[in-house]
Simulated scan of single mutants.
Amino acid sequence: MRNSYLQTDLSSEFDRLQQQVASLFGGLPSSLRSDRYGSFPKLNVGTTDDAIEIVAFVPGVKSDQLDVSIDKGLLTISGQREASFTKEDGDDARRYAQERYAGSFRRTIELPPNANPDQVTARCTNGCLMVTIAKHEASKPRAITVQ
Rank of each mutant, 00 (worst) to 15 (best):
M1D: 15
M1W: 15
R2G: 10
R2E: 13
R2M: 15
N3C: 07
N3Y: 13
N3L: 14
S4L: 15
S4V: 15
L6E: 15
T8F: 11
T8H: 13
T8Q: 12
T8I: 13
L10V: 08
L10T: 05
S12C: 15
F14K: 12
F14R: 10
F14W: 15
D15M: 09
R16M: 01
L17I: 05
Q18S: 08
A22K: 14
S23N: 12
S23Y: 01
L24Q: 13
L24E: 11
F25T: 15
G26C: 04
G27I: 13
L28V: 11
L28W: 11
P29T: 08
P29N: 09
S30Q: 10
S31V: 14
L32C: 02
R33S: 14
S34D: 12
D35G: 08
R36C: 02
R36A: 09
Y37F: 13
G38T: 04
F40E: 01
F40P: 03
P41K: 11
P41L: 03
K42G: 11
K42R: 06
L43V: 03
N44F: 12
V45H: 10
T48P: 03
E53H: 05
E53A: 05
E53S: 08
I54W: 06
V55E: 03
F57S: 14
V58G: 10
V58T: 12
V58I: 09
P59K: 01
P59D: 01
G60P: 04
G60C: 13
V61W: 02
V61E: 02
S63C: 08
D64V: 01
D64H: 09
L66Q: 07
D67Y: 09
D67I: 09
V68Q: 00
V68K: 05
S69D: 13
I70Q: 02
K72Q: 12
K72A: 11
K72P: 04
G73C: 02
L74G: 14
L75N: 05
L75K: 03
I77M: 08
I77P: 06
S78H: 03
G79C: 09
G79W: 09
G79R: 07
Q80M: 02
Q80A: 02
Q80S: 04
E82M: 09
E82D: 04
E82W: 05
S84E: 05
T86M: 00
K87G: 01
K87P: 02
D89I: 03
D89C: 03
G90E: 02
D91C: 06
D92R: 00
A93L: 08
A93R: 01
R94I: 04
Y96A: 01
Y96C: 03
A97D: 00
E99D: 10
R100G: 02
R100I: 04
Y101L: 14
Y101D: 04
S104F: 15
F105Q: 05
F105G: 07
R106N: 13
R107M: 04
I109K: 01
N114S: 11
N114V: 06
D118K: 12
D118A: 07
A122T: 05
A122Y: 06
C124Q: 04
T125P: 01
C128Y: 07
I133D: 03
A134P: 06
A134E: 14
A134R: 09
H136S: 09
H136M: 10
E137H: 10
E137W: 14
A138I: 07
S139Q: 07
K140E: 11
P141F: 09
R142L: 12
R142I: 08
I144K: 10
Q147H: 10
